[in-house]
Computed example of a mutant assay.
Amino acid sequence: MEKLLDLARSLSSDQFGERGLAEVRNIEQEFVEVITFTPADEIVAVLHTVLDEDWMGLPVWARNLAYRMACLQRPDDVALLREAATDLRNFGPDWNEIAAALNERAESLEKDQD
């Protein structure tokens, strides 16, 4: 989890844009590689930590990827689906349809649990 957290903090840093292009690309590539194989619980923990530290700091593409990876691993997690949908709506409207589908899935799962 520490590696992913460090990378997310690097992406969120005010100084991130001041780095050279090669360094920026390396950090972005490493973030993608690490998050691809990180368990959902760790991804969510990192998201909560980084977003609590600076809600707008993490680039939207990194947030979307993180939530997507977590939701793919936990497709029946109602709370996670709703959290991801809310985050997408915060940066929409491009993703409003996807957010609506996530909320519909969450509602369907809840009905099935009752």
Rank of each mutant, 00 (worst) to 15 (best):
E33Y: 03
T38L: 02
M56S: 00
L47D: 05
V50M: 05
F37M: 09
A62Y: 10
H48L: 13
A22D: 13
P59S: 06
L72R: 15
D54H: 14
I35R: 01
E28T: 08
F31W: 08
F37L: 12
L65C: 10
A66F: 00
R25E: 11
P39Q: 09
F31G: 01
V50C: 05
E30R: 09
S13W: 00
Q73E: 13
A22W: 07
R63A: 01
M69D: 03
F31D: 03
E28S: 14
C71D: 01
A66W: 03
L72P: 06
V34D: 01
S13Q: 00
D41G: 13
V44S: 03
Q73H: 08
F37H: 13
A62M: 10
A40N: 02
S12I: 10
L72G: 10
H48E: 15
L47M: 15
V24G: 03
Q15L: 14
R19N: 09
A66P: 05
E18W: 11
L58V: 08
D52A: 15
C71W: 01
C71G: 02
Q29A: 12
A70Q: 07
G20V: 05
R19L: 15
A45F: 10
Y67V: 02
C71N: 04
D54Q: 14
G57W: 08
L72N: 08
L51D: 01
L51W: 02
G20M: 11
C71P: 00
A40F: 08
